[in-house]
Simulated assay, not measured.
Amino acid sequence: MYELVQAGEKSYYIQSPAKIGIYLKNDTDMYLIDSGNDKDAGRRVRKILDQKGWTLKAILNTHSNADHIGGNHYLQQQYGCDVFSGGIEAAFTENPFLEPSFLYGGYPFKELRHKFLMAKASKTKPFSDPAFPHDVEVIPLPGHFFDMVGFRMPDDTVFLADCLSSAETLEKYHLSFIYDIDNYIKTLDKVAAMQATMFVPSHADAVKDIRFLVDLNKKKLQEIAAYIMSACIEPTTFERVLQRLFVDYHLTMTYEQYVLIGSTVRSYLSWLRDKEKMNAYIENNTLLWQCVTD
């Protein structure tokens, strides 16, 4: 873990729970793509940079989930470097309390206020800022989170952030966090049509051909959508659907999984409702869901 792997002529990644990308601008100046999940990840990054004699110019954040921005604060303190982020992601990065609040849907209780869901704050600049490396292409990849992006480097290496889960993760956990199902599907189609010398997803192996992994993720999404519809043949509550998912897929409920998977299930229900495949109505002061049948 935390070994340096070369992905392209000027691109590298640090093997970690969420891959940390590197763009080597020249012999000494480099940019990070995300920063890991905490201060310890930041220290490990600094150790690698010191060993290589590289200087951190800036961090390019794909999105604001804590496991991608957790090292920002430490590295910004150590190097005085810029952090670039965009849209709603910038707001969450500067105000990380928003993430557990959004996921829980209210003020998060103390078991949700920790580094897994809430990084330390860091100051950001927009991608339009003149200091942003002009030779790096910003690729919008919404769906997993609000304004998530990927980056294409000058050597044609593409960092894909969290728009794909590995085959192993899909087989073991089945559900990955998705905020906007409709935009997520559009992103999958967009990625499937991309060409690059190397693709580097944050939570899957780097590959030259990404289409197989896209197909796996799309099939799993369709499977979960079909399961949720089957769970709503009779009118039922969100909580009951969530419980059935955890039982039938042999998952273990924790506070973190409750908010992450719970938020994802709500997103599926909203998407199915907008597609007119699901009805929602209130009965006896309870919101009920029922799939539309022919």
Rank of each mutant, 00 (worst) to 15 (best):
K220Y: 13
E239L: 01
T237R: 12
V241W: 08
A226L: 11
V241I: 14
K220M: 14
A225G: 12
A226E: 12
D215N: 13
V241N: 11
L216I: 14
R240L: 04
S230W: 02
L221G: 05
Y227W: 11
E234C: 00
K218T: 14
V241G: 04
I224H: 06
K218C: 08
K219C: 04
I228K: 10
D215L: 09
K218Q: 14
Q222M: 11
L221N: 11
L242V: 02
R240D: 07
I224A: 01
L213G: 14
I233L: 10
E234K: 10
A231D: 00
L242N: 00
K219N: 11
L213Q: 15
L221E: 08
T236S: 08
T237N: 03
I224K: 03
F238W: 05
Y227Q: 03
T237C: 01
V241S: 06
A226Y: 11
Y227H: 05
D215A: 14
N217H: 11
S230M: 02
I233P: 00
T237Y: 00
K218L: 12
A225N: 07
A231L: 09
P235R: 13
M229D: 00
N217V: 08
N217P: 10
R240K: 13
Y227C: 02
F238T: 01
I233M: 12
S230D: 10
C232R: 00
L213F: 15
E234M: 05
P235N: 14
P235S: 10
S230A: 01
K219I: 02
A226F: 08
D215M: 10
V241D: 10
V214E: 15
Y227T: 07
K218Y: 12
E239S: 06
Y227S: 04
